[in-house]
Design a protein around this nucleic acid. Structure first.
Lengths: 217, 217
DNA sequence: CTAACTACATGCAAGTCTGTATGTATGTGG
DNA sequence: CCACATACATACAGACTTGCATGTAGTTAG
């Protein structure tokens, strides 16, 4: 008899067990990156956080590099997923420009981006890690662009839309990495408000939405 | 008898010796951060790179944290120094806006910013390090603002100038951290060209320079 | 000139991390 | 039901790292 998917825990198929612990380990790795930084992301700690023994970890990821590589991929799909969810909520928004901007900001909040930042920086010193990042980063950005253009057809036509999104992402990332640990949420919010205003102004110029009477033209 | 400042090496005053090795160690720390990342910045490696024994290192910096804290301060003054040098070269520039932008970009090239980025990210997981960063970061930005306003008096008056500089810095930092190790210098250059164009457009809007002489200057 | 102090060197102890080797349990195909 | 494979656990070895304790050379003060 087939034990059925998701039967309590008495008997799971090998593949289920395997997938479950792999997921546990990958999530723990992300958690570790966020809480202890790349330097503090050790196999011991990851196993502990995942609630599995170090032996299990080694079984699935023979070397630490294997685990981190897998984490890169894991994070990439997680980011794409988060972005997609946010984008869906904005479908058919009346004023897509500010909406897209806020969406971008929200996408970069939370642990997923923090872990990614750790990997970006660490990749500079680790060639194989850099290769992994290089391979999966376009996937995230590509997905985001794809959906953005699908959801904002009015803007999608404009050739500058893509560039504007890139610049917006760069601003957000610059703010977040140079902020000391988000120690002061107020300061962070103020920085974003300033940048947001600038990005909206830029959008007006780029997309020719200044219309007949916005500023002296 | 005074042995004279900078006498070869036969006899240096204690203070000279001390300062020299401290400088050596701090520079080696920065070098280590750039080449091996925060995780790879170990006291052993730093001492080796500095060309001194590990004993000398612990003599000057009893704990690793002490050394890193000192490195934060060291990097801060180094960055201020670099910025100042670049700014001086731009004194009385005819077209200060693009000049300031290029200056900012150049200031963020090189090892100084890379090391700083390592510390920013690492500070998220290390409370004492975060405190240090929090203390010396305003110094750098403050110095840069101060000199910028002194050198570009025309712009300094405009209340948006300061904000625009901040946004520009954020863009630059976002580009640099999210670039995988500068593997492809072309891509990096393209990203900067795009952002630069956007920032110039933004400046036109902010500073009301769209007027009759937008292109002719 | 000597005593004391500072700068530096060497060696060691304790801890941690990674990778491996070997043992055990739990599914799985015949 | 049985051989086998896969998932996981435990134990250990080697290579780090950090911090300390002790020893030595060079410098300064009286």
């Amino acid at each position: 008899m087939s034990p059925g998917v998701g039967s309590a825990k008495g008997s799971r198929t090998q593949e289920e067990r395997s997938a479950a612990t792999r997921q546990l380990l990958l999530d723990a790795t992300v958690d570790c990156l966020v809480r202890y930084g790349y330097a503090g992301t050790t196999t011991t700690r990851i196993a502990e956080l995942a609630g599995v023994t170090r032996g299990a970890l080694v079984h699935h990821f023979p070397s630490r590099a294997d685990l981190v590589s897998a984490a890169v991929r894991h994070l990439a799909s997680k980011r794409a997923e988060v972005a997609f969810a946010r984008l869906e909520a904005l479908r058919g928004s009346a004023d897509p420009i500010p909406a897209a901007l806020d969406m971008l900001w929200e996408v970069h909040q939370g642990s997923v981006f923090l872990a990614t930042a750790e990997l970006w920086v660490a990749a500079r010193a680790d060639a194989t890690l850099a290769e992994q990042v290089d391979r999966f980063e376009p996937m995230v950005t590509g997905t985001l662009m794809e959906f953005s253009r699908a959801l904002f057809p009015v803007l999608a036509g404009h050739p500058e839309f893509r560039h504007w999104l890139y610049t917006s992402m760069d601003v957000i990332r610059g703010i977040l990495v140079s902020d000391p640990a988000g120690h002061e949420p107020d300061r962070l919010a103020r920085r974003w408000q300033r940048a947001r205003r600038h990005l909206l102004l830029l959008a007006e110029v780029l997309f020719d939405r200044v219309g007949p009477a916005s500023a002296t033209r």
